[in-house]
Design a protein around this nucleic acid. Structure first.
Length: 882
RNA sequence: GGGCGGAUAGUUCAGUGGGAGAACGUCUGCUUGACGCGCAGAAGGUCGAAGGUUCAAUUCCUUCUCCGCCCACCA
């Protein structure tokens, strides 16, 4: 025996996780090779923000990827899991600005260049926090290929894509109504606006006619915007207002003249049926304005304060203060008719939750229709497949209703728009390199556009920019298209869809063949984990307390693809217990296996029933696990392994193997050891993708000197191990053992006391199986077993049961409590009778007999026979008690 | 206003056109030579409601109820 006995009785992740990660990383096991002899398997990691710290969402996302990647690697694919981080424009800039604020500085004090130096310095210092945390999770990505959305290569790709889109007219610059965040001081795209139902008010305001008395009553939720009104619109079909169209109103407080116009957009039923039109601060009004050539007045500025256009009384006021004052003023003038409560959706910035101010502004856009179409077809043609399938519809629905994508941001941190403007002639020039002078007028006063691109613009290129595009690299031709994208369902629009249309436009192929969507990690109460709620659980804390494997296993088993997952600490304990169970089963094996590996090659004819059984079950586990993984059913795969390890391998096989190991002949023990080693070795391989650390550690105790488990091959299908006969026979033994245990427990037979179990088995074959495996029943049910074909005289002082057609008698001498035994039998008989009547009812049904498949009918017949025998036996037994 | 997901044991969740499952919790035993992060045994469910399809529905279809999410330019 070797140093195996040194294994401690509990697995301690802290002792081994760091060590094995180092072995893997330094051993180059994560390194991807372009190997034409192998099939490629590639995943690009959704890049976490450089500002980020690992949260449960990352932990889930990366665990799923790591399971797939480790599994494929073991299967012999040439695997590339490409990691990286995202520059996260607003988030990172805000972080550094907050730091500057502590020094009493703003970014404007530093200037663009100096500020960017500070951001880069910050990134160098803190940007690898999350990648270090991913290592602790066990993520087996190729760190030598780590990328950053603003590194040289990615920036090249961004420029290239921008220029090509610009040149073919798919990127344009226009004055348009956009979503302005007064807090972030930048425009954001439509999907970055979160619409939240908010309690508000509907204000009814009189707009007097210019001529004569009377007024039109309008209703608005945002009275401060009235300062920018340039018309009032009614529905042309609205009888009430037909005569008013073309008349002129006087805008209260401002005294501007407003035409009454007719537009289909106006809902007759809402409010008063008359709509105040503010082209400068409402997307719908903007469209109406364009249709009717209305002027647009910007009354709210970039800082959320009223502009001079709003009039001297209001200029400089915060938009909310202004609202109050406008209401007061209207009230004073008797123009405010009433205020109603109204719940409506208010758009807020997804980053800072500030209420978005729609504003007209000159921005850069991507023309979406031509790009969206191929992306729609790719999903329709199943060139990209979503798992679960239902997300296809969500994706398609979004693309089919897509609007142009606003890509410019008024930030400094990001990819600067590669366009230079000439102040002299107005020419704009897009260029890959610096532009020194205007190509049109020769002016040297050209200046680069100050804005940067939406962070998601560079993310959209991630699957090919990281592989080297626009260069034609070996990685790109070998690994592209990537195999699968693993991501949370909340960024299908932000990211998945954009990667697909960009890839189709520039690579002429999908970026990945499959999209594996998972849900969100919620807290125990079902709420989203968030910083503001303070209900987040830190994965690193969990790794500290339970180990990375426990966290991984819990996340995988708790998850059905696409569905959210609630985080329960109890489940974490369950995962840890499982890992500890595996550890101890291995410990048992190692204590008994010894070092004589070469001797363990055993002739299969020497296998006993229990060996054939566990090998057959192992074979099933291999097959089932592989099937589940193929279907991205990782949770089910992990559950299959959990059940196999705990129920079959530990609770049954290890117990069944002990008699031979402890008291068997040397030859018997050798057979047992061989099977034990085989099953344990295979199981470790199966479990490795899920719980890499503990399996790797055990592996090296089991096979000292062998290559690490990460580099071992995935268990192949061994059809010769399937043994239905062994499973059937074993089922009989197990049922008998359970019955005896049940009787012992119910009748309170002390554990130390051996019971003399009598088994009456009329069937020759069954009797043989029992006879040959008597020792196992004796061992596991703590008794001595005798078998008979029939029994002339049945002992009265015995507990009785029927299992698998075998009558079981456990003589209890004076111990038996007749009343208790009778009650037990009555209860047993009751369930048998219920079941039997159900089965017989079925078999009496002509429809069932004629229409149900033959094997279903046969099965019911079999059950009927079994139940009948059980019933008779129980009834006879009851009769004995009178 | 559309769309999606969930509703199954006390709790958290799997699952299935033909005998309802796991984990945790509960109850009863147990210093059984791997493990008390354990072992053995047990209790506990008209599978949200109502219809329909079928020989057979917890599972498929329709409607409804409740919870959650996403999308949407009724001010």
């Amino acid at each position: 025996m070797s140093g195996n006995k040194m294994l401690p009785p509990a697995y301690n992740p802290k002792l081994v996780e760091e060590k094995w990660y180092r072995v893997w990383e330094e051993g180059g096991y994560f390194r991807a090779e372009v190997d034409p002899a192998k099939k490629p398997f590639c995943i690009v990691m959704p890049p976490p923000n450089v500002t980020g710290e690992l949260h449960m969402g990352h932990a889930l996302n990366n665990t799923l990827q790591d399971v797939l990647v480790r599994w494929r690697r073991m299967q012999g694919y040439s695997v590339l899991w490409l990691p990286g981080t995202d520059h996260a424009g607003i988030a990172t800039q805000a972080r550094v600005e907050a730091m500057l604020a502590k020094e009493g500085l703003s970014r404007f004090d530093l200037g663009r260049e100096k500020f960017l130096e500070r951001v880069w310095a910050w990134k160098e210092k803190y940007g690898n926090t999350i990648t270090m945390q991913l290592r602790r999770l066990g993520a087996s990505c190729d760190w030598e290929r780590e990328r950053f959305t603003m590194d040289e290569g990615c920036s090249e790709a961004v420029k290239e894509v921008f220029l090509r889109l610009y040149e073919c007219g798919l990127i344009y610059r226009d004055n348009y109504i956009v979503n302005w965040c007064p807090h972030c001081r930048t425009v954001i795209s439509d999907i970055e606006v979160e619409h939240k139902e908010t309690a508000g008010h509907l204000y009814y305001i009189k707009y007097p006619f210019k001529e004569g008395n009377g007024y039109v009553l309008i209703a608005t939720t945002r009275p401060e915007t009235m300062l920018g009104d340039t018309a009032v619109a009614v529905n042309p079909a609205d009888e009430r207002f037909r005569d008013l169209i073309g008349k002129t109103l006087i805008l209260p407080l401002v005294q501007r003249e407003l035409p009454v116009i007719a537009d289909d957009y106006v809902e007759m039923e809402f409010g008063t049926g008359a709509l105040k039109v503010t082209p400068g601060h409402d997307p719908n009004d903007f469209e109406i304005g364009r249709r009717h050539n209305l002027p647009s007045v910007q009354v709210i500025g970039p800082d959320g304060r009223m502009t001079p256009e709003a009039g001297v009384r209001y200029a400089g006021l915060d938009r909310w203060e202004c609202r109050k004052l406008v209401i007061e003023d209207l009230q004073r003038e008797g123009l405010l008719v009433k205020i109603e409560d109204l719940s409506h959706a208010v758009g807020r910035c997804y980053r800072c939750d500030t209420v978005i101010e729609p504003t007209v502004s000159k921005q850069w856009f991507v023309r979406m229709k031509p790009l969206a179409e191929p992306a729609i077809r790719a999903a329709e043609d199943k060139r990209v497949v979503f798992i679960p399938e239902r997300f296809t519809k969500i994706y398609l629905n979004w693309l089919e209703n897509i609007r142009d994508w606003c890509i410019s941001r008024q930030l400094w941190w990001g990819h600067r728009i590669p366009v230079w403007h000439c102040p002299d002639c107005g020419e704009s020039t897009a260029s890959r390199g610096e532009v020194e002078r205007c190509p049109r007028c020769g002016s040297e006063r050209v200046e680069q556009d100050p804005d940067v691109l939406d962070t998601w613009f560079s993310s959209a290129l991630w699957p090919f920019s990281t592989l080297g595009w626009p260069k034609e690299t070996a990685d790109l031709s070998y690994f592209y298209p990537t195999s699968v994208l693993v991501t949370a369902r909340d960024i299908i629009f932000f990211w998945v869809a954009r990667m697909i249309f960009m890839a189709l436009a520039f690579m002429d192929d999908v970026p990945f063949r499959e999209v594996f969507i998972h849900g969100l990690v919620l807290d125990a109460l079902g709420r989203k984990m968030s910083k503001s709620l303070g209900n987040g659980v830190d994965p690193i804390d969990v790794i500290e307390s339970h180990g990375a494997d426990s966290l991984r296993f819990m996340l995988v088993t708790g998850n059905t693809s696409g569905n959210d997952l609630r985080f329960h600490f109890e489940r974490l304990d369950g995962a840890r217990n499982f890992i500890n169970k595996l550890w101890n089963a291995s410990r048992f094996a190692l204590m008994n296996l010894g070092d004589d590996r070469a001797m363990e090659q055993v002739d299969r004819s020497k296998y006993e029933l229990v060996d054939r059984w566990i090998l057959s079950r192992y074979h099933r586990a291999v097959r089932k696990t592989s099937e589940c993984l193929d279907l991205y059913d990782l949770g089910e795969a992990a559950r299959v392994l959990y059940d196999f390890v705990w129920d079959e391998f530990c609770d049954w096989y290890i117990e069944l193997v002990k008699p031979r190991l402890y008291r068997g002949t040397p030859r018997e023990a050798a057979v047992a050891r061989a099977v034990l080693r085989k099953v344990l070795g295979g199981t470790l391989r199966l479990l490795h993708p899920f719980v890499p650390f503990v399996t790797e550690d055990i592996w090296h105790h089991l096979e000292p000197g062998a290559a690490p488990l990460i580099a071992q091959c995935w268990p192949g299908d061994e059809p010769e191990l399937a043994d239905p006969a062994a499973e059937e026979e074993m089922a009989v033994l197990m049922e008998i053992i359970r019955s005896v245990r049940h009787i012992r427990a119910e009748m309170k037979v002390p554990p130390g006391r051996r019971a003399a179990v009598v088994l009456v088995a009329p069937e020759e074959k069954v009797r043989q199986v029992i006879e040959q495996n008597k020792r196992y029943i004796e061992e596991l049910a703590a008794g001595t077993v005798s078998v008979a074909r029939e029994l002339a005289v049945k002992p009265a002082q015995a507990a009785h049961a029927v299992a698998a057609g075998v009558e079981i008698l456990v003589p209890l001498g004076g111990l038996i409590d007749i009343d208790k035994e009778r009650a037990r039998l009555v209860k047993e008989l009751d369930t048998v009778l219920n079941e039997l009547s159900r089965v017989e009812g079925k078999l009496r049904n002509a429809g069932f007999l004629s229409k149900a498949p033959a094997e279903v009918v046969a099965k019911e017949r079999e059950r009927q026979a079994e139940l009948t025998q059980k019933r008779d036996s129980l009834a006879a037994r009851l009769k004995m008690f009178g």
